[in-house]
Amino acid sequence: MTTGPAPAPRTPAGGAGLAALITAPDTALIALDYDGTLSPIVSRPADAMPAPGAVEALRALAARVGTCAIITGRPVDALLELTGLANGNGERAGLENLTVLGQYGLQRWDGATGATTSPEPLPGIATVRSQLPEVLRDAPPGVTVEDKTQALVIHVRRAANPDAALGALAPALRRLAEENGLEAAPGKRVLELRPPNHDKGRALRELVEERTARSVLVAGDDLGDLPAFDAVDELRGLGIAGLTVCSDGPEVPAALRERADLVVDGPLGVVTLLNLLAARIG
């Protein structure tokens, strides 16, 4: 495990959040994004394996803090398969304090029980699924659809000109989402058609209230993590210390980088930070 001092946040509020986490870990909540934060960004979502040491760092930290959570847009089952956090035999040693919130909080897996809960998809999802082939009929090669059951994600990363492809497709996709009671949420060279009013900010606030956390660390790398950063600001106003962390990289939105109390060098930087925190807590 990496040892040494944890990196210093660049804001006083972030410094207070880090101090609270270290001095009172039993009431701390560590909330982490997956893609781009615990795993490098890749062309195919199915290939997004955890960064070296990420799962081990999660296990170490989950054993030392009140709650460790992964809050992701991915379905819970896909996340668990990629990380191996819950294998076929149900082994969950050291994961009692770990929670996975998939689909921005629509789905949930608890390490203490190994149980997954998931609602029925909104009716609009089935309609959008059936209409997407026609909407994407003239899309350039490399545009793909990821079906998350609760949401549908249009990926343009493998198109010859990803930004142009997304720009051309976005108006029709936004209309399709709106007509069917969904929202179209942007991300890194993706547009996700998903149930409205479900984002990482809401998921974080609900988990903080449930666990009565007194300090929060949030780490992310994309526009979808900004609502969680907003939630940290709101929680600070309620007396809950907070630290926001940007997992930096060439595609990270400037708005997220600028908002972060602490910027680390991609998923490997996040792993290093988690190991340093676990070592400091002891």
Rank of each mutant, 00 (worst) to 15 (best):
A62D: 10
A62T: 06
R64C: 02
V65R: 14
G66K: 11
T67N: 14
C68V: 03
A69G: 14
A69R: 14
I70N: 03
I70F: 04
T72D: 01
G73V: 01
P75T: 12
P75R: 15
V76H: 09
D77C: 10
A78T: 09
L79I: 12
L80G: 12
L82S: 11
T83C: 07
G84D: 14
G84T: 10
A86L: 11
N87Q: 14
N87F: 03
G90L: 00
E91D: 15
G94K: 03
G94C: 06
G94Q: 03
L95I: 00
E96W: 09
E96L: 06
N97Y: 07
L98P: 12
T99P: 08
T99A: 14
V100A: 14
L101E: 08
L101A: 07
L101C: 06
Q103L: 04
Q103N: 10
L106P: 06
R108I: 11
R108E: 14
W109P: 14
W109Y: 15
D110K: 12
T113V: 02
P119K: 05
P119V: 02
E120H: 15
L122N: 05
P123H: 08
P123A: 05
G124I: 01
G124Y: 05
I125W: 10
I125K: 11
I125P: 13
A126N: 03
A126E: 05
T127Y: 11
V128D: 05
S130I: 01
Q131V: 04
Q131H: 11
L132P: 01
E134K: 09
V135K: 02
L136S: 08
L136I: 09
R137L: 04
R137I: 02
A139N: 13
P140L: 11
P141D: 15
G142S: 12
G142T: 09
G142M: 07
G142F: 06
V143W: 03
T144E: 15
V145F: 10
E146V: 08
E146I: 09
E146P: 15
E146G: 15
T149Q: 15
Q150P: 05
A151V: 13
H155Q: 14
H155C: 08
H155D: 13
R157D: 10
A159C: 03
A159T: 01
A160S: 02
A165D: 06
L166F: 10
G167N: 00
G167R: 00
G167K: 00
G167T: 00
A168L: 08
A168C: 04
L169W: 04
P171K: 14
P171A: 07
A172R: 13
L173E: 14
L173T: 07
L173I: 06
L173V: 09
R174H: 07
R175E: 15
L176P: 05
L176Q: 09
L176W: 03
E179I: 02
N180Q: 02
G181W: 15
E183S: 13
A184K: 02
A184G: 03
A185G: 11
A185F: 06
P186Q: 12
P186S: 04
G187K: 07
K188Y: 04
R189I: 01
V190Q: 10
L191C: 07
L191D: 08
R194I: 05
R194M: 15
P195H: 10
P195M: 13
P195Y: 12
P195R: 12
P195L: 13
P196Q: 13
H198R: 12
D199H: 14
D199F: 03
K200I: 00
G201L: 04
R202T: 08
R202N: 05
L204V: 00
L204F: 02
R205C: 03
R205Q: 07
E206V: 01
E206C: 01
